[in-house]
Design a protein around this nucleic acid. Structure first.
Lengths: 243, 243
DNA sequence: GAGTGGTCTAGACCACTTG
DNA sequence: AAGTGGTCTAGACCACTCA
């Protein structure tokens, strides 16, 4: 019993990894039921504790929820995993009790430019969708957004109606389980941005730059500019972390 | 065997919680060895699996590290738990390969002012230590910092030599396992700040405001102003989270 | 070498919740 | 009522690593 650490992975790690792959690759979607512990016990020919441990880790990672009698299910992906609350702007504004508005300024489809490191990093030399828009809270400009979408990662995006749905909101519901990197800095609003945001030129603004991946593939790269007084990013840390 | 869900906590939760309390309260300090699994088995009169599960959760939470033969130890507290990298400024600058410098501008001890919500929230109506300083990277101003310390939470701070050690660095090594809340916004540098940072007035700056607690008690509240072009906050998210 | 954690088993009973 | 997860036990063997 027990192979000599087969494949450098322990049994519960292999079980965990198997389920994780199904989820991250999108084969099992949020809300889908995963096999019951008994089914996995049969499939892997191990004891129930081992399966339970594997699933338990996925629960702690927030990828799975378990319900007695019902079974275990793929979790709804959190809004960028819940620590730094940088969610969808529409959601954020509505949560503040303000009216949300949105105007699409531009939309174009083109090849990524070799000279542009960001574009190459996002989409190689494939096709890009470029979007520009402004978000409004209670009729006042709240953020200016410029976004690139890697079309090969999200082919449906070419048919999406971004005149009605903001791209961030649309992407959230079409590409779950993403990894993201955020970069936050302070900039002065240049003339065109200032005009769009209805603030004086050179007003201090938060610039939030975010690159998103799904399954290792670049999905979108977005620049959002917020007037400094209209938006705070808040993050709370308790002593806790997993690997 | 097995009380009827005694105290609403399961056995492994009680074991976990017991150890956690010892760590969070500072009775067991980073690097200290915690009892071996066998000792805990005897102490709680349960099986080893149960103890192992409790410790395993603390490992996943990053509060404990286990080493074969040696035992299990209280982990070194992470720099504010590793997601939003807002570490100690000195560490950050040295990591960039720049020379670190620091000047203490002011230091005073006084009562917290009732009219000031931040001060009351931090220290009730107790004593405060107020510090102002500037951090330098390669001889150039990097950040202006204003800080309040709750003396009753960190009595040793009144004797600390902040002319030599920056308060952030000092606190990190004297008050581990803190909880923190960050608030990030963009502001223009006012005249005194601009002079200290050696930038033009009204330069866009990141304002990072951080309140820190230890064991439920306010420790420090700090405002750090960074010229917008000299500092980016970076945060990476993978699909994972614990409770 | 001996002590520690790491993993795993084959059971058991319980509690929840859904059908 | 039955199926599911939740917890726990009392063992076992292994692998690492410190003394």
């Amino acid at each position: 019993m027990r192979e000599p650490t087969a494949g450098a992975l322990t049994l519960h790690e292999r079980i965990r990894s198997g389920i994780e792959q199904k989820i991250l690759s999108g084969i099992w979607k949020p809300g889908d039921r995963i096999p019951s512990e008994f089914e996995l016990v049969e499939q892997y020919g191990c004891s129930r504790m081992t399966v339970s441990k594997a699933i338990g880790e996925l629960v702690q990672a927030g990828m799975v929820v378990r319900r007695r009698k019902a079974g275990s299910f793929v979790a709804q992906p959190p809004i960028h995993s819940g620590i730094l609350e940088v969610p969808d702007i529409q959601t954020e504004i509505l949560k503040r009790g303000q009216a949300y508005g949105y105007v699409l300024l531009g939309r174009s489809q083109r090849k990524s430019r070799k000279a542009n490191a960001v574009e190459v990093d996002l989409a190689g030399n494939g096709e890009l969708l470029e979007l520009e828009c402004v978000h409004f809270a209670d009729k006042r400009p709240f953020a200016y957004e410029k976004r690139l979408i890697n079309i090969s990662a999200v082919p449906q995006s070419v048919d999406a109606n971004f005149a009605q749905t903001p791209p961030g909101t649309w992407l959230l519901s079409h590409v779950p389980w993403t990894t993201a990197e955020h970069r936050i800095s302070a900039v002065g609003a240049d003339l065109p941005t200032a005009k769009l945001l209805d603030v004086p030129t050179w007003t201090p603004c938060l610039l939030l730059e975010r690159q998103t991946w799904h399954d290792g593939v670049g999905v979108t790269h977005v620049w959002q500019t917020f007037p400094g007084d209209s938006y705070d990013l808040v993050a709370t840390f308790a002593p806790s972390r997993s690997s």
